[in-house]
C-alpha cells in the first residue's frame, strides 16, 4: 500500500515536472522573441505570445492531413520530446534519469526528429525534403563535437548516467575544470545548431525553402511542432546545464533545496538560451557546407584537444 502510494506520488511529481518544463519551453519562445526584438530595437510581442500562437493553431477550424504517415509527425514530435525531458534531471530532481543514461537521451531525441522527418516526407513537398536533408546534415555536423565533449565528460566522471554526472559535479561544476571549459564552449556552439538558431538556422530557412520541413504543416500539426520546438529548447539547454553546469544543484536535501535548485536551474537554462539568442541575432546564416566544415574542422579539433587533455588527466 505504502509503495503504491509513494509510486503514485512519484508519477505525479514526474508529470508535474514534465508539464512545468513544457510550459517553461513555451514561455521561453515568447521571451526569446522579446529578447530578439529588443536587440532589433523593437518592442516585441508579449512574453506569453507562445501560448497564444499554440492555442490559435490547435483551435483552427480546419486541419489538413496528407495521410497517416503525415500524422506521425504530430504523434511522435510531442511524445518524443516529453519522453526526453522525463529522462533528464531537472534541478537535481532525477525524474526517470536513473533508468536511462546520456546515450538513451541522445537517441530519444531522435524520435521526434524522425517523426517530424517522416511527416515532412509524407507531405510530398520538395521543399520539405530539402529541409529535412539540411536538418540531417546539420545533425551529423554538430553531433561530432558534441559527442566528443560528452565522451570526455563520461571518461572523467567514469559514468554514462546524467544523474551521476550531475551528482559528481556537486560543489565543483565541470566548466570550472580547464579542459571542460573548452568542451563547454564547443558544446555551446553545438547547442546553437541543435536549437536551429542562426548562424545554423539552415534547415528552416524561410526565405530559401519556405520554412523547409514545416512547409506543409498547419493547424494542429503546426501547433504540435511548436510544442516540440518549445520542448527542444528546454531539453537541449537542460542537457547542457546538466552536463557542464552541475544541473543547477546548489543545495542538498529537503523541499527547500528542491525549490532553490529549481530556481537556479531555471536561471541557468535561461542564461544558456539567452546566450544562444544573442549569437542568433548577431549572425547571418551559414550555407550547409560551411556549417559542416565549421563543426568538423574547428569545433572538432577543439573538442579533441579537450578530450586528449581529459584522457591525460584520467590516466595520470
Amino acid at each position: 500500500m505504502v509503495t503504491v502510494v509513494s509510486g503514485l506520488i512519484n508519477v505525479l511529481i514526474i508529470a508535474i515536472y514534465a508539464t512545468v518544463a513544457m510550459m517553461i519551453g513555451i514561455l521561453f519562445m515568447g521571451i526569446g522573441r522579446k529578447i530578439v526584438a529588443r536587440v532589433h530595437n523593437r518592442v516585441g510581442p508579449p512574453i506569453y505570445q507562445g501560448f497564444i500562437d499554440i492555442a490559435k493553431l490547435i483551435l483552427k477550424k480546419t486541419n489538413i492531413t496528407h495521410g497517416w504517415i503525415y500524422d506521425l509527425a504530430l504523434l511522435f514530435s510531442i511524445t518524443g520530446i516529453v519522453l526526453t525531458i522525463l529522462f533528464l534531471p531537472i534541478g537535481g530532481v532525477k525524474l526517470l534519469s536513473t533508468e536511462g543514461d546520456a546515450f538513451l537521451v541522445l537517441y530519444l531525441l531522435a524520435i521526434p526528429a524522425l517523426g517530424f522527418a517522416l511527416g515532412a516526407g509524407a507531405s510530398g513537398n520538395p521543399n520539405s525534403a530539402i529541409g529535412v536533408m539540411r536538418a540531417l546534415v546539420m545533425m551529423l555536423s554538430y553531433e561530432l563535437p558534441f559527442v566528443i565533449s560528452m565522451v570526455a565528460l563520461m571518461i572523467y566522471y567514469d559514468t554514462t548516467s546524467i544523474a551521476e554526472i550531475v551528482a559528481s559535479q556537486y560543489g565543483k561544476w565541470a566548466i570550472l575544470i580547464p579542459p571542460f571549459a573548452i568542451s563547454a564552449a564547443v558544446a555551446d556552439m553545438a547547442l546553437q545548431g541543435m536549437l536551429m538558431e542562426a548562424p545554423f538556422d539552415i534547415p528552416i530557412a524561410p526565405h530559401e525553402i519556405a520554412s523547409g520541413p514545416m512547409a506543409e504543416f498547419g493547424g494542429k500539426h503546426l501547433g504540435s511542432l511548436m510544442i516540440y520546438k518549445a520542448g527542444t529548447i528546454v531539453a537541449y539547454t537542460t542537457l547542457f546545464v546538466d552536463l557542464f553546469l552541475g544541473g543547477g544543484v546548489v543545495m542538498k536535501g529537503g523541499i527547500v533545496a528542491d525549490v532553490v535548485n529549481f530556481i537556479v536551474w531555471f536561471i541557468l537554462i535561461f542564461l544558456v538560451f539567452t546566450l544562444s539568442l544573442l549569437i542568433n541575432t548577431s549572425f547571418p546564416r551559414f550555407r550547409i557546407e560551411q556549417a559542416f566544415k565549421f563543426y568538423w574542422k574547428y569545433e572538432a579539433v577543439l573538442a579533441i584537444i579537450a578530450l586528449v587533455w581529459v584522457y591525460w588527466m584520467v590516466i595520470s
Binding site: 523593437r42 518592442v43 510581442p45 524561410p206 520554412s211 514545416m214 512547409a215 503546426l222
Partner: peptide, 21 residues
Amino acid sequence: TSRFDMERFGMAPMATPRQAD
C-alpha cells in the same frame, strides 16, 4: 522592422499558406 514593429501585436510573417491566417 524596427520602425513600426508589427510583432508587438503578435503578427508575424509566414512562409507558406498552410501556416498563415
